[in-house]
Design a protein around this nucleic acid. Structure first.
Length: 554
RNA sequence: GCGCCUGUAGCUCAGCCGGAUAGAGCAACGGACUUCUAAUCCGUAGGUCGCAGGUUCGAAUCCUGCCAGGCGCGCCA
């Protein structure tokens, strides 16, 4: 709809140019927006003001040049007005609006999908928490954002894959194995000192207990060189299964789980470094091997192989991202906790060195979550093993509210998560406001059915009966959904979806209080049922993008 | 010390590739249920857009400098 209008404005600009009113040496970017107040019109363009400088003319004067041709299509634009400093306001023809609405209905379930991502194959990597303990709340936000962004981008036409990178290599894994081993020995009465730098959480004891139950004291041989490997593997698997379970319950599924270990096993880590060495991006110094990341705006070079030959985490990450490129993704999208932002420049350097520069790689940082209970921040410390897990929160407030709360703020805004608010089933809680609208519409449909008004097919409905201001407002709001999807996806801003839904639903609730849908007037009832059908399906689709359920009854 | 994010109504936040009287939700206050779900609706009140400069016809938005909070600055992951 906006595009139609945009083309219309462009043609008016051309006409003004042909008539010698405008110079237009560069094609202007025509912005179509919605006026603050609906009374001013359905849409507006700022193009006259944008052009003022280059044309060296008064914006209102420029607008004057355009209005004549903008008035030439009453079937499209019913009324054109110049307002304020040089806005051109449009009132669309009611029939045109209804026509757009009709074609939206024809798209049925697909309405809202768009093509802005067409041809882009994207890999969204998110969560990727180390398998050394259960997911905490911060991971939860990353999970919700990543999963919903993936869904959103699919809606916007991107070809999306999702992936969880498992850091199952390195010192932390040894520490994990050792932690379990010590707890295992404790269980069997061979307790000793438990070093502070090992994992303190109770979940380690659970794993140890499980091993005792299954294998008894078979792994007690302390000098057994295989023992640590055993404890490492079992712990990792156990924790990873827990993570998968937690995510599954949180409605987050990954297309692939990618193990760091496999990169080492297949020689891809070696190969990646060799490749970069051949290109001159890797060199040896002080007995270590370095990536020349400073050549790409990183503040200094980074070690990839330490003195002594051990590879850094970064080293494997290089190979991992080369792997991603080889799999043919033209957009590599990593979602990281904000605490990793210092890591961004070196990773950008890697991708650039690998020839997959700025357009092909993007990191989305997700800021921290602060839990609030009783108006107070909930203190957490990983050290003491005292922290609130994602599973705890989901258990306490439910998946819908948890996901909604994680998604309703911009990712680069710190999030205050009020546990008590999220649990409340009152108007203070924004989740229910949206879900309630969905349920309400379902209920209206049931009423219609019970009164013998069969759900109408599009062909047998006269949309011309939708002629009230509220009808048009609602139609316009519904019609803007595909654009919201496209913009949110392009900007990787999932939070626009709940904001949009909130606005849509507010209009619906308001409509509900003004217009009775199911009435004696059957043709009108049918038209309104179709209007609500579109609203309901947009709500359902929006919630589906968020991974929040759309209940039929509340 | 350097870098990134944030600072907008009592609270939580949108708006930030410059544009119309700065918006929403909640909280506060006043109204609306014999009606398709009142988990709703209608209305009122509430703001030096952190501070100070600059660019511009026009700045919450762009630039510079401060201030405050958060997070980073490893041959950790």
């Amino acid at each position: 709809m906006k595009n139609t209008l945009k083309e219309f404005v462009c043609s008016a600009l051309n006409e003004a140019k042909n008539q010698g009113h405008l110079v237009l040496d560069t094609a202007p970017d025509v912005v179509i927006e919605e006026p603050k107040d609906e009374k001013m019109g359905d849409f507006a363009t700022t193009v006259a003001m944008t052009l003022a400088r280059s044309e060296k003319k008064n914006p209102r004067q420029i607008a004057e040049y355009l209005t004549a041709s903008l008035s030439s299509r009453p079937d499209l634009v019913e009324e054109v007005q110049i307002a304020g400093p040089g806005f051109i306001n449009f009132r669309l023809s009611r029939d045109f609006l209804r026509g757009e609405f009709r074609s939206a209905l024809e798209q049925g379930e697909h309405f809202g999908r768009c093509e802005v991502g067409r041809g882009t194959k994207v890999l969204v990597e998110f969560v990727s928490a180390n398998p050394t303990g259960p997911l905490h709340v911060g991971h939860g936000r990353g999970a919700a954002v990543g999963d919903s962004l993936a869904r959103l981008m699919q809606w916007a036409g991107y070809e999306v894959s999702t992936e969880y990178y498992i850091n199952d290599v390195g010192n932390q894994m040894n520490n994990l194995g050792r932690s379990t081993q010590l707890r295992y020995r404790e269980e069997l009465g061979h307790g000793g000192a438990f070093p502070e730098d090992l994992y303190q959480g109770d979940y380690i004891r659970d794993i140890a207990r499980a091993i005792v139950e299954k294998d008894g004291d078979r792994h007690l041989g302390a000098d057994d060189p295989d023992a640590l490997g055993f404890f490492r593997t079992v712990s990792c698997d156990h924790i990873l299964n827990g993570i998968k379970e937690d995510l599954g319950r949180f409605r987050v599924e990954f297309d692939q789980w990618f193990s760091e270990q496999t990169l080492h096993d297949s020689g891809k880590v070696e190969a990646a470094i060799q490749w970069l060495r051949d290109k001159g991006f890797v060199y040896d110094k002080d007995g270590a091997t370095w990536l020349k990341s400073s050549a790409f705006r990183d503040e200094k070079d980074r070690v990839v192989i330490k003195q002594g030959g051990e590879k850094t985490y970064f080293c494997a990450d290089i190979a991992y991202h080369q792997e991603k490129i080889e799999r043919g993704f033209n957009l590599i999208l990593d979602i990281w906790g904000a605490d990793h932002h210092g890591y961004v420049p070196r990773m950008e350097a890697v991708l650039e060195a690998l020839g997959h520069g700025s357009d092909g790689f993007q990191v989305l940082l997700v800021q921290f979550v602060t839990l609030i209970r009783g108006g107070e921040k909930v203190q957490m410390s990983t050290r003491s093993g005292k922290f609130i897990t994602l599973a705890d929160v989901v258990e306490e407030v439910g998946v819908d509210a948890t996901r909604f709360f994680f998604l309703m703020r911009s990712s680069d805004s710190h999030l205050d998560f009020d546990l008590e608010l999220a649990k409340k089933e009152t108007q203070e809680n924004p989740v229910y406001y949206i879900q309630y609208a969905h349920a309400r519409i379902c209920s209206i449909f049931k009423t219609a059915e019970s009164k013998g008004i069969a759900f109408p097919a599009l062909e047998e409905v006269d949309l011309g009966l939708l002629d009230q201001p509220e009808d048009f407002s609602l139609m316009k709001k519904v019609l803007s959904f595909p654009e919201v999807v496209g913009k949110s996806a392009e900007n990787r801003e999932v939070h626009r979806i709940p904001f949009y839904l909130q606005e849509l639903v507010a209009q619906f609730h308001s409509y509900y209080s003004v217009h009775r849908v199911v009435s004696e007037d059957v043709p009108l009832t049918r038209a309104r049922l179709l209007l609500l059908l579109s609203v309901r399906s947009v709500i359902a689709n929006g919630l589906q993008i968020m991974g929040v359920s759309a209940p039929e009854k509340m």
